[in-house]
């Protein structure tokens, strides 16, 4: 029992990231509201961010800033830099998605996917 718990805890970040990925993807796929889809997409991407950040962190490591004389263990900064880029991309994606939703709302009067489809078929 405790062994299983230990295993779970040792990979806590990974589990959390996986959970976020799954929740996000589920929301994207199942929800019909376009804004909720975007929120789901954000949750999904957050899962990836968490995954990258955990990857670079070393337990007991400090921020990777060189201090003279200190014999410190540094966390790997590269994944964090990478994910910063990914976060920026995510912000851009979100804003573009929202802009599109605004346009859809203006021309269809709704943000529900089903209504949009029904309105086109009518």
């Amino acid at each position: 029992m405790s062994e299983a718990l230990a295993f779970l805890m040792a990979h806590a970040n990974t589990w959390a990231a996986t959970a976020l990925l799954c929740i996000g993807l589920w929301v994207v796929m199942v929800r019909g509201n376009l804004i909720k889809k975007v929120i789901g997409l954000n949750i999904f991407q957050t899962g990836v961010f968490l995954f990258y950040i955990s990857m670079g962190y070393i337990i007991g490591g400090t921020a990777p800033i060189v201090e003279e004389g200190a014999d410190a263990v540094y966390s790997n900064p590269l994944p964090h830099v990478l994910i910063l880029t990914a976060i920026v991309v995510s912000v851009a994606t979100t804003s573009l998605a929202l802009a599109l939703i605004v346009r859809i709302r203006e021309s269809y009067g709704t943000t529900e996917e089903d209504d949009v489809i029904a309105s086109d078929e009518a």
């Binding site: 920026v88 851009a92 804003s95 929202l98 802009a99 605004v102």
Partner: peptide, 16 residues
Amino acid sequence: TVASVMTAIFITFAER
């Protein structure tokens, strides 16, 4: 660039 983009995004939405 970042400052301009963020502000532009805000203005575009808010203005609409």
